[in-house]
Each structure stands twice: as structure tokens, then as C-alpha cells.
Amino acid sequence: MTKFSVLDLVPVREGGTLHEAFAASAALAVKAEDVGCERFWVAEHHAMDGIAGGATSVVLAHIGNATRRIRIGSGGIMLPNHTPFQIAEQFGTLDALFPGRIDLGLGRAPGAGPELQRALRKNLNQASEFFPQDVVELRALLTGDVDLPVTATPGLGANVELWMLGSSLFGAQLAAKLGMPYAFAAHFAPDHLDAALAVYRRDFQPSSALEKPYVMVAMNVFAADTDEAAETLASSQQQSFVALRTGKPGKLPAPIADYTASLPAPAGAMLDHLGQAAAVGTPQKVRDQVDAFVQRTAADEIILCGSTFDPDARLRSLEMTVDACAKIAV
């Protein structure tokens, strides 16, 4: 059976507050736990008015306190923005607070321009070059499998599940070499999906943490009572994608009925391209689209994305989706 999880950006909607955004994310995590999702991940983004997950480990503590069983983690921590030692301490602390529930998904792309690089006091281009080395060091800080001159406390001995994130062949190759589970960000970068999964599975080397390849793929999913209602629900995130790609990011906007019909051709083509890793419609239509995607990718797990202007609509969408897809098998 395919497992289902949730990826949340902690969206801040137009006219809304940070407090409301964090409350909505906690409510979504509770719903994900209630409907049987495997994990709830928060993504690290910085200096974006519409995304509040920048202090990812702090947000995860908030999520952990709101839930009881579901795994919680990062999807992901952009390691070039940090030092391995800092992340070992942060996620070691989370593991001590929420034992046996912590995932640490790691990404290489810092996603930062010159101004943010200065704010972070990092040469992010150089840091990206050292990413494989930093992943190995971080793992050693948690496991103690390599002698290091300093000990992370909290950190050493923490039961943290390490994941490699990616949207290209690089992450797939590194995940395979290190024997890590692999999550592919098809929800915003679907181009190399099939090739990356093939490389990961072909080159996978078993590790003490993982005996065989394990794949999770991200999809944008919006379910509602009618196709039209689901398409309107999806339009808030679609507007955000268009705004981001045209250099005008902002808070999550209110939905617009029949939004795509009014778009210029380049924006429409971009959304159509992202649609290959999306399911939008009634529960039955969503199930069929998700099933086809699972058959295409043979994913062990699907992580569901999709910000909505009305937080309650996302709760309903998640419940509909998981209920409809409950019996999908790889």
C-alpha cells in the first residue's frame, strides 16, 4: 500500500497573520495524524512574505506539541544555509522532545540571492560545493560512526531519520551512494523525475539505516466536491507560483474562479508543466490521477502539497484525498 504524508509551507495568506499561519499548520498536522498520514514535513524558506517556515526546527517543535504520533520533519533543511553542527543540535533536541518521530530531510539548493547570503553570513555557492561532505559530517554527529573532534549535545545518539531531497540527478546519486531514502520535489520541478528515480534505484548502496531504495514523491493535490470547486481551490497556489516565477512573490492570495483561462500563454504553459505532478478535482478524479502517478513512479510514499487560502478547505481536501486513495498499491 502506498503511504501518504503532508508537506506544508506554513503559508501566510493576504490579510492574515503569522499567528494564524502557525495555528493553521498545527491544525493541518493534527488532521494528517487523524487520517493516518505517515509524516508531516515543513519546508525551509527565507525572506518570503507568504511563507513562515524559515525557523524550521522551531516550527517543528510547535507541530510536535500539537500532535502525538505522526512523524514530523523538514522537507527540507537547506544545509548550505547552516553548519552541520547546528542542525545536529537542533534535530537532536527535537528527537529528545519527540522521541522516535523526527525526520531530517536535507536539500542542497540554498535558494538565496546576494542580500540573503549577506544576512546569513554565508558564501552559499561555496557551501553548496561542500554539501556531500556536510551531509556525511552531519550523519556522523548524530550517529558517531566517524570520530569527530567535537560532540553535539543534544545530537549524538539521536534517533533521527535522514532523508535526501532533490529535483535533479545530483540528489539521487548522493542518496544512492549514502544509502538514504530519497524524496523528489516533483511538485515544483518535475523535469528530471523519471531519470532521477531510475538512477537512485540502480545505484543504491545499502546502509545501516536502509537496506533497499525507498522513494517519496511530492504532488500538488486539491480535492473538493466538484472539479470546478477544486480548480478554484488550487488557484491560490497557482497565483503564488506565477507571482514567484515572475519575480513578484507575496502572501497567498484569495482564490479566483477559472483563473487559468485569463493567463498569458507562458504562465499557462508553466502551470500545465507543473500539472504533470498534480491531482485536482473530485475525490474519484484525484484518486485516478494519484493512482496513475504512483504507477508511473512506483513511489513508496506520496507527500501531498497544496496551499489553500481557506485553511479549513485544505483540511477537507486532505481528508477527501486520503480516504479516496486509501487502497492504492504500488
Rank of each mutant, 00 (worst) to 15 (best):
L271I: 11
D272Q: 15
L271T: 09
P190W: 08
S317Y: 01
H46V: 03
T67Q: 11
F22I: 07
L120C: 08
L141Y: 12
A119C: 05
P283N: 11
E44G: 12
Q237P: 08
E115M: 07
A265V: 14
L141S: 06
M320V: 01
L18F: 15
Y200P: 09
V135Q: 05
G155W: 09
E115Y: 00
E319D: 12
Q295S: 13
F85W: 01
K122H: 12
V280K: 10
S5L: 02
V286T: 03
T226N: 11
T282R: 13
L165K: 06
T17R: 10
G306M: 06
G111E: 02
E20G: 00
A223I: 11
G155L: 10
P253Q: 07
A313S: 14
P206H: 09
A243N: 12
M1Y: 08
L318T: 03
A47W: 07
A209F: 11
L318F: 01
V286P: 00
A195K: 05
A23M: 07
L156P: 07
A29Y: 05
Q237M: 14
Q276E: 12
A158D: 01
T83H: 05
F204D: 00
D258C: 02
F222T: 05
T246N: 08
L97I: 07
L252S: 04
A278C: 13
I51W: 03
S74I: 06
Q86K: 14
R69I: 08
A140K: 07
S168D: 10
I70N: 09
A140L: 01
G155Q: 10
P11L: 02
L142H: 04
A172G: 03
A175D: 08
D312Q: 13
L104T: 02
H62K: 11
E115H: 02
V150R: 15
S262Y: 04
P253F: 04
L142S: 06
S240I: 02
D194T: 03
R314E: 04
E228Q: 15
V242E: 02
N81G: 09
V322W: 12
A299Y: 06
V286G: 00
P84H: 03
A230G: 14
L94M: 05
C305Q: 13
M48R: 10
F91R: 06
G50F: 09
A265C: 00
K3T: 11
